[in-house]
């Protein structure tokens, strides 16, 4: 494989990693929101339990 081809391959790999990074960031943000929502629901559950 020539140097040019190797560089092209590296560039493609870097692009792929950038895409993965975006996807993972997005997923992590969703997980954070789900967890936040769950924590809030749990607090709400505790509050309603204490009211009873």
């Amino acid at each position: 494989m020539s140097n040019e081809e190797k560089i092209r391959q590296l560039e493609a790999e870097v692009d792929r990693l950038k895409q993965s990074e975006k996807v993972l960031m997005h997923d992590l943000e969703i997980y954070k929101q789900i967890f936040k929502h769950l924590s809030e629901q749990f607090e709400e559950l505790k509050r309603s339990f204490n009211r009873r």
């Binding site: 140097n3 040019e4 560089i7 590296l10 560039e11 870097v14 990693l17 950038k18 990074e21 960031m25």
Partner: peptide, 18 residues
Amino acid sequence: AASSLPGIEKDIISIKKS
């Protein structure tokens, strides 16, 4: 041909950091 290598290296460092 190798001149784009520093750019790739910079990208990789940034990805690694991220």
